[in-house]
């Protein structure tokens, strides 16, 4: 490995190279004070350079047969870990089914769809569902809701929370038929209190909040879900420099992926829809372009199929592509209406 690839400042790199240290091995046997004299820098700076260099040379060394590489994991261990991971239910059994049980932790899931299909509704539902207590099969976590469009409605969140509490206490009664003492402790207001809401008004703030999440979540360890509704809005409005947009979006996706892995949480981002000219006709496609489509682990598209709402797995490394109906009711996201009599308004 070359010195040019070390994460050190440009002037230090230039000094190293001009003093003749071009490879990592040439740095390996040096003492900090010697290097400091050589490059005419302070001792602490020299120490820093050597630390970075030794870390990188260790990562670089892949010889030695079964060398234990820093940070790696065997596929077998990963399998075990994946089986233990809880999932966040969508409250729609068919949808959970095609998602393999719900929204997965440690993954970034992108959900897109036409206006009015129910993206925000699904977001609110997930923010409520992540709080289902562990003894009822949930995660008992909290949610961060990043709202770029201003479409988060507390009234609606309260409705969904109330319906969810009702469902939970019903389920609880079933579980503990003989043991009546086991009462539901969760109240709708508690659910609302565990949703941390950020209102974002520009793409700079969006970048900032994603950088800041790292610190925020390390202070609020019980956050198990991050929702961005929608990732698209600001990036669609005030952008002329598309190269900058691609770069920023790429960086953002990477940070979200890291966040999901480090804190073992689920990230759900919503995307808008645009029309695209393909094969001689205009078709619907998710916004933000082709390079963005690479950045999420899973991609789900919500669409109208006749009179019903459907979800389609467009991309996933582990799930097969399938579609399932769902519906949006007064109580929130539920199984498709055709399965039971539709609840009429009022």
């Amino acid at each position: 490995m070359e010195v040019g690839r070390l994460p050190i400042s440009a002037s230090h790199r230039a000094k190293l190279i001009s003093a003749g240290y071009t490879t990592l091995s040439s740095l390996s046997s040096l003492s900090p004070s010697y290097l400091a004299r050589e490059l005419n820098i302070t001792d602490s700076e020299a120490l820093e350079i050597l630390k970075v260099a030794s870390l990188n040379s260790r990562l670089d060394r892949t010889d030695g047969g079964q060398a234990i590489v820093n940070g790696a994991q065997t596929a077998w261990d990963m399998l075990h870990e994946e089986q233990l991971l809880p999932r966040i239910t969508t409250s729609c059994a068919d949808l959970d089914n095609i998602l393999g049980g719900g929204i997965n932790c440690k993954e970034v899931t992108e959900i897109g769809g036409v206006p009015g299909i129910g993206k925000t509704q699904l977001g609110i539902q997930l923010a409520v569902n992540v709080q289902i207590p562990v003894d009822l099969g949930g995660m008992g976590g909290k949610a961060v809701y990043i709202d770029t469009e201003g479409s988060f409605m507390v009234e609606r969140a309260l409705q969904i929370a109330e319906a969810s509490v009702l469902d939970m206490s019903e389920y609880n009664d079933l579980l503990h038929k003989e043991n009546r003492a086991c009462q539901m402790k969760l109240k709708p207001n508690d659910i609302l209190e565990s949703i941390y809401y950020f209102r974002i008004c520009s793409y700079t703030e969006q970048m900032a909040v994603i950088n800041y999440l790292d610190k925020f979540i390390s202070e609020h360890k019980d956050v198990k879900l991050v929702i961005i509704d929608s990732v698209t809005f600001h990036f669609r409005q005030d952008f002329e420099d598309l190269a900058l947009r691609t770069r920023l979006l790429g960086g953002m996706a990477l940070k979200l992926m890291n966040l999901a892995k480090t804190y073992n949480l689920a990230v759900v981002i919503f995307n808008q829809v645009t029309t695209k000219y393909m094969d001689g006709s205009f078709q619907l496609a998710l916004a933000l372009g082709d390079s963005w489509s690479h950045s999420c682990t899973n991609r789900v598209i919500l669409y109208w199929n006749g009179d019903e709402r459907y979800a389609y797995i467009d991309k996933s490394p582990s799930l097969r592509s399938a579609s399932a109906p769902f519906s949006v009711t007064t109580k929130g996201i539920r199984n498709s209406a055709s399965n039971y009599k539709r609840i009429r308004m009022m």
Partner: peptide, 26 residues
């Protein structure tokens, strides 16, 4: 022309300040 650590900590600080404060839904 500064090191990785300085840049990361500066960015973290800038992000924290530029990020709007949160509220709970309640």
């Amino acid at each position: 022309d500064v090191g990785m650590a300085e840049v990361s900590s500066a960015l973290a600080r800038i992000s924290e300040i530029a990020c709007p404060p949160y509220q709970t839904a309640l």
